[in-house]
């Protein structure tokens, strides 16, 4: 399959159904999804819980194989080494080895990206400075606060100078100051030529940083468009697309 050089991520009619031991379908997580992320844009993948965002991300990362359709990353199969070399990933929670220090963690991922020891040292120090962790570089990450752990995870995602950065709920659980820092960082990285694919529950955050968004519901794409072209606020747009039938009356519950 030929892929346009400007498309970093391409999904064509991708579907994924999870099955139980007896091969019976349990959840249709993604259903016929077409998606492209162009080079240099900040693309937001939005949707309510269970809409298929995480499954889509995992298929792009090559962690889950699609049941149907094709996924291309830089025009390559997503589980190829060449594609993974150009990729950075920040998961929703910071899954770190608790016994490693912040410096060791970043340097471990630098090694996995194939950086030589000198470059790895330089990049690690730069990233520790950039994320404000230089003073805590020698402490084991097991004792870090959620915000600090998030910064270590972000530095680890950036260590290989990725062309595409996938951020899964990057501002989840962060205080307003840290949230603002992340948004500024995203804008800076895009200016430097990086492509960013992010998911978020916080529509205001997505509205601030994304050029283009795609809204998923029940594994299907229900809307896609540039932020400037949506017309109303993203919040209203989102609720119009996925909010039907989700009335929740507190008075009824308290009665």
């Amino acid at each position: 399959m030929n892929s346009a050089p400007d498309n970093v991520v391409e999904l064509n009619s991708v579907a994924k159904t999870f099955r139980d031991f007896w091969m019976r379908p349990t959840v249709k997580a993604v259903d016929g999804l077409d998606l492209t992320v162009a080079r240099g844009e900040v693309f937001g993948l939005l949707g309510p819980n269970g809409s298929g965002k995480s499954t889509t991300i995992k298929m792009i990362l090559g962690l889950i194989k699609p049941g149907a359709g094709t996924v291309r990353l830089f025009g390559l199969p997503p589980d190829s080494i060449a594609a993974r070399r150009r990729l950075g990933y920040l998961p929703e929670l910071s899954y770190l080895h608790p016994f490693l220090t912040a410096r060791e963690t970043i340097s471990y991922y630098a090694g996995l990206c194939g950086l030589d020891s000198r470059t790895s040292k330089e990049r690690t120090s730069q990233l520790l400075e950039m994320t404000g962790l230089a003073d805590a570089a020698g402490r084991a990450v097991g004792g870090f606060s959620k915000g600090m752990a998030r910064r270590v995870a972000l530095a680890s995602a950036l260590v290989g100078r990725p062309e595409l950065l996938i951020l899964d709920e990057p501002t989840s659980g962060l205080d307003p100051v840290s949230t603002n820092e992340v948004k500024t960082l995203v804008k800076t990285l895009v200016k430097g030529g990086m492509t960013i694919l992010m998911t978020s529950h916080l529509l205001a955050d997505a509205e601030d940083v994304c050029n283009r968004v795609c809204i998923l519901n029940h594994g299907r794409k229900v809307a896609e468009g540039k932020i400037g072209e949506i017309g109303s606020s993203l919040q209203d747009f989102f609720l119009a697309k996925v909010g039907e039938g989700r009335d929740f009356t507190v008075a009824e519950f308290l009665r």
Binding site: L63, Y89, L112
Partner: peptide
């Protein structure tokens, strides 16, 4: 189980 493995698996290592 701690979801750390996927972070290693998305890196360019076989």
């Amino acid at each position: 189980e701690a979801k750390r493995l996927q972070l290693t698996m998305v890196r360019p290592a076989r």
